[in-house]
Deep mutational scan, measured.
Amino acid sequence: MKKYKITVYDEKTGEKHTIEIEMSEEELEELAKKLAEKHNVKVRIEKV
Rank of each mutant, 00 (worst) to 15 (best):
20 E>D: 05
14 G>M: 05
47 K>M: 15
1 M>F: 12
25 E>K: 06
41 V>R: 02
39 H>S: 12
19 I>T: 07
17 H>E: 12
26 E>L: 15
21 I>K: 07
37 E>M: 08
1 M>G: 07
8 V>C: 14
12 K>M: 12
28 L>C: 09
18 T>E: 05
18 T>K: 03
40 N>K: 05
8 V>E: 04
7 T>W: 04
42 K>Q: 12
47 K>L: 15
23 M>A: 12
16 K>D: 08
5 K>C: 06
25 E>M: 11
30 E>N: 10
13 T>V: 02
44 R>F: 15
12 K>Y: 10
46 E>A: 02
46 E>G: 00
20 E>Q: 10
13 T>W: 05
13 T>Q: 03
18 T>I: 11
16 K>W: 07
46 E>N: 02
47 K>G: 11
29 E>M: 11
18 T>S: 06
36 A>T: 12
28 L>R: 02
8 V>N: 00
5 K>D: 01
46 E>H: 04
8 V>Y: 12
43 V>H: 02
40 N>P: 02
20 E>T: 13
16 K>R: 10
20 E>H: 12
19 I>L: 11
22 E>L: 11
16 K>Y: 11
45 I>T: 01
32 A>D: 02
32 A>Q: 12
7 T>I: 08
40 N>S: 09
23 M>W: 03
41 V>P: 01
22 E>I: 08
27 E>G: 11
8 V>D: 00
30 E>P: 03
48 V>R: 02
10 D>R: 01
22 E>H: 10
36 A>C: 14
24 S>K: 10
16 K>S: 14
21 I>E: 05
7 T>Y: 06
3 K>Y: 08
26 E>G: 11
44 R>S: 15
38 K>H: 08
8 V>T: 11
19 I>R: 05
27 E>T: 06
5 K>T: 05
44 R>W: 15
10 D>N: 14
4 Y>F: 06
7 T>L: 04
31 L>G: 00
40 N>Y: 07
31 L>K: 02
33 K>I: 08
20 E>K: 06
39 H>L: 09
36 A>W: 09
20 E>G: 02
9 Y>F: 08
9 Y>N: 03
37 E>F: 04
28 L>K: 03
25 E>W: 10
29 E>R: 13
14 G>W: 06
26 E>A: 10
34 K>R: 13
26 E>I: 11
38 K>A: 06
13 T>E: 02
15 E>I: 12
45 I>K: 01
26 E>M: 08
36 A>G: 09
22 E>V: 10
41 V>F: 10
32 A>N: 03
1 M>N: 07
30 E>I: 12
19 I>G: 02
3 K>Q: 12
25 E>I: 09
2 K>Q: 15
11 E>L: 15
33 K>H: 08
45 I>H: 00
20 E>C: 09
25 E>T: 05
47 K>W: 15
18 T>N: 03
45 I>V: 08
19 I>C: 14
33 K>L: 07
11 E>C: 15
